[in-house]
Nucleic acid binder design. Sequence first.
DNA 1: TCAAAAATCAGTATAAATACGGATGCTATT
DNA 2: AATAGCATCCGTATTTATACTGATTTTTGA
Lengths: 210, 210
Amino acid sequence: MKPIKLIIADDHELFRNGLNELLKKYDDVHVVALVEDGNQLFQELEKHKDIAIVLLDITMPNMDGFQVLNKLKNSDNNIKPVVISMHDEGNYIASCAKNGAYSYLLKNTDQDELIKTIRIVNDGKKYFQPQIAEKMINYMSEQSVSENILSNKEKEVLGLISKGLTTKEIAKQLFVSSRTIETHRANIIKKLEVKNTAELIKKATEINLI
Amino acid sequence: MKPIKLIIADDHELFRNGLNELLKKYDDVHVVALVEDGNQLFQELEKHKDIAIVLLDITMPNMDGFQVLNKLKNSDNNIKPVVISMHDEGNYIASCAKNGAYSYLLKNTDQDELIKTIRIVNDGKKYFQPQIAEKMINYMSEQSVSENILSNKEKEVLGLISKGLTTKEIAKQLFVSSRTIETHRANIIKKLEVKNTAELIKKATEINLI
DNA sequence: TCAAAAATCAGTATAAATACGGATGCTATT
DNA sequence: AATAGCATCCGTATTTATACTGATTTTTGA
């Protein structure tokens, strides 16, 4: 039986090397390369055409995990990305799933789950742990709505509000009447279901609108 | 020569075990125990009285790294804590240094730096990499001002403002006059050097005040 | 214990935000 | 062609927030 060839992509050297050491215990897994960002990953993927799995961190310099997922999705290959992240937030998980991740593991996962996931994914099946899937579903049903709800102009106004500009100043800067900005502000507040500007800014930062 | 006895405290099992594997290469280092939070750490420290170094993560459940540093500082021992964190923010670094950390490493440090640090710290010397020390200094001169500048009452009011409550509502809730809350709000705005409530909430979230 | 900081309250005035109401031209989708 | 959403604008009125100056009591820390 051929070993499962995989590459580890993580900008934390200690984690990367540590994971490598851990995986040496398993005969059916062969770590082909260790890289610290997406660019290096694709260089390695050029060299090795038989990679089955990429263990992928999200937060990396240069080309991060999201970009890697996107590029993998839009190219012809059968590499199965497994995200290993420390963020258990719904938006991270959902974004990864949407962009083709075969699994999403937290860095506090135990070794058994890791090797189990690698083996399942290697068979071409996606595998998300129940608690991860739940976070994703919760996110889908709540947050994603408000992310796409604002028009471009409204997002622009929101950004200026958060910089401390008043309605009048924003109107001047955007060459429109104050009334227009007031309407925008009112619409934004209504859409995000908040009471006033203070709560608006808080909610907007929470859902990464600004 | 006796090996350097150390304990690894990190809630991420993969990282913890990986680090353990890495350190097995070095004959002068002996990993006595792996723990996932501060409580377990102190249980182990009870059992082993000759621990020289603790490799300590900041973000852990139950008892986190900061609490561990504090407890170690206030007890009689010569355990030298080395923080290994993924946050390269000045406030984290400064807090650790202030609470007795002998070093502060990032998780993307290479193995050579890690073992070098362990050996230096084992000799009783503190060691902070130049870029870490620089971050800390920058923080000292800038951020710490705004972090510690708010009084408890002001922080409480700030929290309520961010929930969308008006001055009047806050006053009612805290059983004081609206004037008081207005003064608080004005003082908070002045202290954080922002123009209005919108910018205030943004800055407050940026520096993790709310 | 003495000084500094924090928490409390006040007057007056202006600026800004919010809540109602309503309107028009434009664009994209059905 | 019609509907819906978006961006733009307006009036009136009320509520909130901000600016300025000033004060007292309590708490805290050196």
